[in-house]
């Protein structure tokens, strides 16, 4: 507990009160579906451990990183400065070229089996993976090296989880998921991109219990992906009453009716969007009158498209 006392001092030094911090821990407990009595345990977990994290970018668009930095409980800076040791992350790290590569190598070697690897992006496998390289090495080589030596690997976003957009038909580069390429069982925070709150909650869960959260058959944490969009949709009543939007901009759209007939994939999609919403609870697709495109489901680019046609 001594370290926890130090942590409180560190929080105080940066103007974060213990009350605010406990509020974050309470939020995390809620997202994770844990009883509120777990909040102090979360606080202790993030206070006593500051594990090294390497965040790899493969074939991707950086949308998952962008989503991650939309977090406010805690703010990104708090995570990076106080909760984890983010040793490698190409989008934000100061070091470049050889110096960046040196950090990665050092981490893999010196902290073998201890660091957390977060993967964003798919791995092109055609022609021995020549379609994606960093520092002269293919993503294929890098993934096998970095993922296999990690304590745990968390895939963020559709690309790392199942190949994503570049793996959509005809998959020109034979892009595959991190798990398929490395044979390592990964935790998959699905979505294109996933919600920041779900990413943060997964990391906290790992820190709290020292193991991965309960997962479904696709490797997705049940606390976030255990709910069908359709079951929690505020427009569900309209579905039951057969009140459907027939065309965008019509009278039904103005009344906020059900989007099922214009392609909504909510009935087949597991995610907590209607519960936690996006961007500090500002909105989410169905509330904005746009059908769910099923982005947390495997192969949604092929299976849920055409997106604006009834399934």
């Amino acid at each position: 507990m001594d370290q926890f006392v130090d942590f409180n001092e560190r929080l105080a030094a940066k103007g974060v009160s213990r009350r605010e911090f406990m509020k974050f821990c309470g939020l995390m407990a809620t997202v994770l579906g844990l009883p509120m009595t777990f909040a102090p345990k979360i606080a202790e977990a993030v206070a006593t451990k500051r594990p090294t994290v390497v965040w790899m970018h493969f074939a991707e668009c950086t949308g998952c990183t962008e989503s991650f930095i939309r977090t406010t409980h805690p703010w990104t800076a708090d995570i990076v400065l106080d909760i984890i040791d983010l040793a490698y992350h190409e989008t934000i790290m100061a070091a470049a070229g050889d110096q960046a590569e040196e950090i990665l190598e050092k981490t893999v070697k010196e902290q073998k089996g201890k660091y957390i690897c977060i993967c964003e992006g798919a791995i092109p496998t055609k022609d021995n993976g020549v379609y994606g390289k960093i520092h002269g090495k293919t993503f294929l080589e890098i993934a096998n090296h970095v993922v296999k030596n990690a304590a745990a690997t968390i895939c963020v976003g559709a690309c790392a989880c199942d190949g994503g957009v570049q793996a959509a038909k005809p998959n020109p580069t034979a892009a595959k998921s991190v798990a398929e390429v490395t044979g390592v069982k990964t935790i998959n925070i699905a979505g294109c991109p996933p919600n920041a709150d779900n990413m943060v909650a997964t990391i906290v869960h790992y820190l709290l219990l020292g193991k991965l959260p309960a997962l479904d058959e696709q490797g997705r944490p049940l606390f976030a992906y255990g709910y069908l969009i359709h079951d929690n949709c505020p427009r569900r009543g309209h579905f039951e009453n057969k009140e459907f939007v027939k065309e965008f901009g019509d009278a039904g759209a103005a009344k906020g009716w059900c989007l099922y007939e214009v392609g909504c994939a909510g009935p087949e999609t597991y995610n907590n969007c209607p519960i936690i919403k996006w961007n500090q609870g500002t909105n989410w697709p169905i509330e904005a009158g746009h059908p769910c495109i099923g982005c947390s489901e495997k192969g949604f680019w092929d299976n849920a498209s055409p997106f604006y046609v009834q399934k």
Partner: peptide, 8 residues
């Protein structure tokens, strides 16, 4: 633990 500021 210099995180993203290491080795710059």
């Amino acid at each position: 633990q210099l995180g993203p500021f290491a080795n710059a």
